[in-house]
Nucleic acid binder design. Structure first.
Lengths: 141, 141
DNA sequence: ATAATAAAAGACTATTTTATCTTTTATGTG
DNA sequence: CACATAAAAGATAAAATAGTCTTTTATTAT
């Protein structure tokens, strides 16, 4: 479904959402160790998310990555599409071009509802909503 | 979602289901051209499916691949798991170990229903049922 | 100013997936 | 039997993804 880049990225954003704000930041090292993911690889991913303004960063001592208030209201599908491209949810499961309800691939009917459902879920839940649930239900990241 | 191996494999099986039987067989060349997929790569995939008895083959002149009667009643999930491994439908979307309803990852609730739904669909539809619908509704493979 | 810190950027390596090419084995036909 | 056909098998190669290491740039504190 998602690439490792995307998996690590989603988890990192969620980590930032529960552990940082404008005051408290987190460095790549801390995040990588907490999530048990390769440090430098995660660095690249955070760079990309930062460049696209999904997360914030500051250099120098006391610096690190963090999630601003505005970024908390971003929906998860944006993060996912930033890392895995805009077609993650819409490209044909069998790889056929122009697969649609009108011109479906053999698996279209079966697959469409489910992929679209996942997309809907991601499109209608903000980072902040994820963060609250993670804290409320003590969910691991 | 699925690897190219799996996508090509599914399509090849469906091709065999509508174009072959014990009498009429299809060679790798024919199938690859019809599906517009790399010939030798497809050969490997067909070999694998054949080795696992999901399709039949015969060497020599007039030989090729085909789908026997028994193989038509196999459900699609078997083909998929043969090519992409047994965990395609069950592994955690975020890659976390032991992700379950009891110990969920942050996306589990959102993702589970949909992945499980797709699995259910594939588990309850046979190759033959796919073939009939493809013919009835003139669906491309 | 200098030193320390931490992200940004770039180059490089490794692994996995995808794809190609060649040789071998089996089988049917003249 | 010789020959053509086609899958099976094995060896390579190319591309994409994943992961590492080093250098540069910006920022803070002493």
């Amino acid at each position: 479904m998602f690439s490792k880049t995307c998996k690590y990225g989603i988890r990192a954003v969620l980590y930032l959402s529960v552990h940082t704000d404008g005051e408290n930041k987190a460095g790549v090292k801390e995040i990588a160790e907490a999530l048990k993911v390769p440090r430098h690889f995660l660095g690249k991913i955070l760079q990309m998310l930062s460049k696209n303004n999904f997360i914030s960063s500051s250099k120098g001592p006391g610096g690190g990555f963090y999630l601003s208030e505005e970024n908390r209201s971003v929906t998860m599908d944006k993060i996912i599409m930033c890392l895995d491209g805009p077609d993650v949810f819409s490209s044909c499961v069998l790889g056929l071009p122009n697969c649609s309800n009108e011109n479906p691939c053999p698996l279209h009917i079966q697959a469409f509802a489910f992929r679209d459902g996942l997309k809907y879920q991601m499109k209608h839940q903000t980072i902040d909503e994820f963060a609250r649930r993670i804290e409320r239900e003590a969910i691991r990241i």
